[in-house]
Amino acid sequence: ITGDVSAANKDAIRKQMDAAASKGDVETYRKLKAKLKGIR
């Protein structure tokens, strides 16, 4: 179950990262990237 949750989280975070990148929001992008590392 835990694996599914983190996989879903990663997917959601990647989508947020894409949105931040397209807006040029480097700050948010970095925060999300750090979150991704924390999940692993």
Rank of each mutant, 00 (worst) to 15 (best):
I1T: 08
I1K: 11
T2Y: 10
T2M: 13
G3D: 10
G3S: 07
G3V: 12
D4H: 12
D4W: 03
D4R: 13
D4L: 11
D4M: 10
D4K: 12
V5A: 06
V5P: 09
V5Q: 09
V5Y: 10
S6E: 10
S6Y: 04
S6W: 02
S6F: 05
A7F: 09
A7K: 10
A8R: 12
N9K: 13
N9G: 07
N9A: 12
K10N: 08
K10T: 11
K10H: 13
K10I: 15
D11R: 13
D11K: 10
D11V: 11
D11H: 08
A12K: 07
A12R: 07
I13G: 00
R14A: 04
R14L: 13
K15V: 06
K15A: 10
K15F: 04
Q16S: 04
Q16V: 03
Q16M: 14
Q16L: 14
D18M: 15
D18T: 09
D18E: 14
A19D: 12
A19I: 13
A19H: 05
A19Q: 07
A20K: 01
A20C: 04
A20H: 01
A21P: 01
A21R: 14
A21G: 03
A21Y: 13
A21V: 06
A21S: 05
S22N: 08
K23S: 07
K23L: 07
G24I: 03
G24Y: 02
D25M: 01
D25S: 00
D25K: 00
D25H: 00
D25T: 00
D25W: 03
D25P: 00
D25F: 00
V26N: 09
V26H: 12
E27Y: 02
E27Q: 04
T28P: 00
T28W: 12
Y29D: 13
Y29G: 08
Y29S: 07
R30S: 03
K31F: 03
K31T: 02
K31D: 09
K31A: 05
K31E: 13
K31C: 15
K31Y: 05
L32N: 03
L32H: 01
L32A: 01
K33D: 05
A34Y: 01
A34H: 06
K35A: 08
K35S: 07
K35H: 05
L36C: 12
L36S: 01
L36E: 01
K37W: 00
K37L: 10
K37V: 13
G38A: 11
G38M: 07
G38E: 14
G38L: 06
G38Y: 08
G38P: 04
I39T: 06
I39K: 05
I39F: 08
I39Y: 06
I39W: 06
R40D: 14
R40S: 14
R40C: 15
R40T: 14
